[in-house]
Amino acid sequence: MAGKKEINPLFKQVLELGPPLAFFFIYLRLRDDTFVIGGTDYSGFIVATVLFVPIMLAAMATLWFMTGKLSRMQIFTAFMVIFFGGLTAWFNDERFFKMKTTLVYGFFSVILGIGLLQGKSYLAYVLDEMLPMRHEGWMILTRRLCAGFALLAAANELVWRTMSTDLWVKIETFGFPLALMGFLMMQFNLLQQYMDDQGGN
């Protein structure tokens, strides 16, 4: 494929997973501190959020330079992090950054749901070349992921509204990604019967 460059898979994983882990460790270091900037007190969480934005942008810029491309999901997630990170700092309110996760998962659920109402799988448009599968399989996977993203959005609302910031950071960094990864692995195993060497749609 023109413009596509090869990259070491391990290095790619570092670029994708490194920023959230960096946020986690920065938060652990700063969570008990208060910073006075321009006469305003900022919690360690908010400072960690602000520091997370350039770290993530640097990782994405490196990924784009190394591979020549970024997925729409990566671009959208980056926009949400920048936007809600900015709101968090501007209003000095950590709730904005916590709500970001709800809106990201909710957006994915809504988009997939719109495709389902049209009898289409938007997942197939994005992943068909990497994962050849018949149309029936794509529709099943799309329905399940639509529900899965909706559940993750609801779970994030429950966690950040009822639990401590410490617990939310841990679940955001490790719990939700691992749950999504496990869910996807389970779905692909269940959908083996729909795999098609000739492609999906």
Rank of each mutant, 00 (worst) to 15 (best):
R95N: 13
R72F: 13
F188M: 15
T101R: 03
I140K: 10
L151G: 05
I55T: 04
T102H: 09
L167H: 02
Y125E: 14
L178F: 11
I111A: 14
L167S: 00
D93V: 06
P54T: 10
A61D: 06
T49G: 01
M56T: 11
F188W: 08
G199R: 08
I171F: 11
L116F: 09
S43V: 03
G148Q: 13
N8W: 15
D128A: 12
K120T: 11
L180H: 00
F65K: 01
F35G: 08
T102E: 10
G137V: 11
M99Q: 01
G115V: 04
L15F: 05
A58G: 07
V47I: 08
E157T: 15
S121V: 03
G115P: 01
M163A: 13
R134D: 14
D128F: 03
Q192H: 11
P54F: 05
L21S: 04
K120Q: 15
G113R: 05
M163G: 05
L10S: 08
A89L: 09
F83Q: 09
T173A: 04
A22M: 09
W168Q: 00
N92V: 07
M181D: 02
D197I: 06
T49V: 09
P54A: 06
A150N: 12
N8Y: 13
H135R: 14
G182K: 02
P54N: 02
N201Q: 12
T173D: 09
L152C: 10
M66D: 05
T49L: 05
C146Y: 02
T67K: 09
G106S: 04
L63R: 02
L103M: 15
V169W: 05
L103I: 14
Y122I: 11
F108H: 06
E16A: 12
R144I: 12
Y105H: 08
L57T: 02
Y125Q: 12
L103V: 12
V47P: 03
